[in-house]
Structure formats: C-alpha cells, structure tokens
Computed example of a mutant assay.
Amino acid sequence: MKRPLRFMLRLVLAALFVAPILLALAASFRDNSDMYRYAGSLSLWTFLPAEPGIDAYRRAFTLPLLQTQLFNTVLLGFVMATGTTVSSLLAGYALSRFRFRGRQALFLLMLFTLFIPVDVILPPLFFVVRDLGLIDSFWGLALPFIFSPIGVYLIRQAIEEVPRELDHAASLDGAGLWEVLRTAILPNIRGALIACWLMHFVFVWEWYLWPLTAMRSDDGQLAQVAIASLIDPLRSTDYALVFAAAILTILPAFVVFAILQRFLTSSQATTGGK
C-alpha cells in the first residue's frame, strides 16, 4: 500500500505545479470574449477553450520588441548561468581545499547573505551600478548577481564529497592546483555543475524588480517585464495575448531544462551523486 500511496502523493504534487501552466496554455488559445464565459460555472469548458484558436499567438509575434526582449532574456540567462557557475566553482574549490584563517567564518557569512531579501539590497545596489556607469546596460543587469552564495554552497558541498586521496594522487604525479581541479575534481562534480548552471539559468526568468530598476530602454529590457506591461488596470487587458506571450517566453527555459535534465541524471548516476 505504501507504493501506490507514494505514487498518488507524487501525482498530486506534480498536478499542483503543472496545473497553472496548463491553465495558462489553455487560456492562450481562447478568444477574449470566451475568457470569462464559463467562469461562473464548473464544467469542462472552464478549463479548456470551447473554440480554440491561435490568433493570440499571431498577435504576440507582432508585439513590438518582444523577439528582441526574449533574445535578451535567453542571452542573459546563458551569461548569468555560465559566469555564476565558474565563480561558484572557484570559490567552492578554495573554501573546500584551501586552508586559511577565517575560512569557516567566511563560509558562514556567505550563507547568511541568503537570508537577506533582494528588496533590501536593491537601493544600494542601484547606486553602485549607477556610479559605475552601468545603468541601462546588459552588464549592469548581469554583473551584480554573477556571484551566488547558493551556487558556492552547492559546489563546495559537492567538492567536499570528493575523496582527498584523489588530490594527493594527482599532486604526486606533478599536478598543480589547476590540474588537480581539472583532472581529480571536475569529473566527479559534473552533476553539481549542471545543477548550478540550470538553476541560475531558470533564475533569470524570475527576475522582475532588478531589470525594471536597472534597465530603462525598451530594446534592452527582459521579456517578463514587457509581458507585465501588457496588463493595464485602467483599460481592458487582452489576457489571451498576455498568456500567449507568457507561454512563448517560458519555452526556451523549458527546452534547456528538458535537455540538461538528461545530462544531469546521467552525471549523477555515473558519479554517484544524490
């Protein structure tokens, strides 16, 4: 009885996460006149479009700058994920293998920053980026968040699980610090590296306040900010268009996640990661 119960529990949890996406997908195929027609009653057409169409997607493709803003989001995701993974790897390697005074205190202080809300550091961060002349630029969005405490923690813990005997064996063969990292450690933490990269790539799709604050030009803005601007409380909102644009925006993240999940699973199986 435990296995069927566990399966049902997983099915319910999966449905809770997938249901909003499926409802948004169904709403993107509705006409605006059909959006609230069945809201007062519970039936099949409450969840599925009675007369599905792709007119909302046609209009989404003609939105000014949407393709440029979606490209900005994808590019920023790749740059942020790669830069954060590299910086987390170097910091995690130093915190795990190097012995220096205050190492543990520095690690705990870094973890403490995870409890600071982003809203608190947003004003001083804006002034720093402004004084550096990076406001309204691509690097003004990326550089302040290129270092990630959660990324450092994830990779540092993965390196801690690698036996130090591998480091000593590589050192006896004449390997330096970089050779030890490349030959003894990297092959054993591929799963953690992929997880860190994927986590920060998807993280860009959650950004709203920082791009809204640091980017002023529409052609450099991210897609999620542009989609939010389609909702106007003072006028009638074209919700079919909003849902269609949102579905188009999440497709790159979904494709990248689907591709890398296979490599993540195979890396965990090969290295014995959990």
Rank of each mutant, 00 (worst) to 15 (best):
W139M: 14
E165F: 04
E161Y: 12
E160F: 14
I146H: 07
C196H: 07
S148Y: 03
W197G: 00
P144T: 03
E206H: 15
I121W: 01
I185V: 08
I155Y: 00
I135T: 15
P187H: 09
F138Q: 12
R164T: 13
N188D: 04
E160C: 08
S137R: 13
Y153I: 08
L186G: 04
W207N: 05
V180Y: 13
F112D: 10
V162L: 06
P149R: 00
M199D: 12
A192H: 01
A195R: 11
L193M: 06
F112R: 14
A142S: 14
D173P: 02
L134M: 09
G191I: 10
Y153T: 00
L132W: 11
W139T: 09
V118E: 13
N188V: 05
G140R: 06
N188S: 09
W207V: 03
F126T: 11
R164G: 07
G140L: 01
Y208W: 14
M110Q: 08
V204L: 04
N188F: 14
I146F: 13
D119I: 14
G176T: 03
F201T: 01
L122V: 11
M110K: 04
Y153P: 00
I150G: 12
D167N: 01
D167C: 00
V129T: 06
A184T: 01
R164E: 12
L141H: 00
H200T: 06
W207D: 13
H168K: 15
L143I: 10
V128N: 06
S137C: 10
M199Y: 15
W139C: 10
G191F: 14
R182L: 12
A170M: 06
G174W: 04
Y208G: 02
I135C: 12
I135P: 07
L114C: 14
G176D: 00
H168L: 13
L166S: 00
A195T: 13
E165I: 12
N188T: 06
L122I: 11
V128L: 09
L109P: 02
W197I: 03
R156E: 00
I150H: 15
L193H: 00
R130S: 12
L172K: 10
L141V: 15
L108K: 13
E179I: 08
H200I: 05
V202S: 07
A169L: 02
W178I: 09
F127S: 12
R182E: 07
I146D: 02
R190C: 09
V204T: 04
I155D: 02
E206W: 15
L143K: 02
I116T: 08
W139A: 11
V162T: 05
I121R: 03
G174I: 05
E165Q: 13
F107E: 06
D119K: 15
F107A: 12
E165N: 11
A175T: 05
L166K: 04
V202C: 10
V128M: 08
F115W: 14
F201N: 00
Q157F: 08
L154W: 03
L143E: 00
I189G: 01
L132A: 12
P117R: 11
P144R: 04
L114N: 11
A175Y: 09
P117M: 01
F112G: 13
A158G: 03
E179Y: 15
L193K: 02
R190I: 08
A169W: 02
F126H: 05
G133I: 02
V152E: 02
G151V: 00
H200W: 14
A158D: 06
P187F: 10
L122R: 07
I189Y: 06
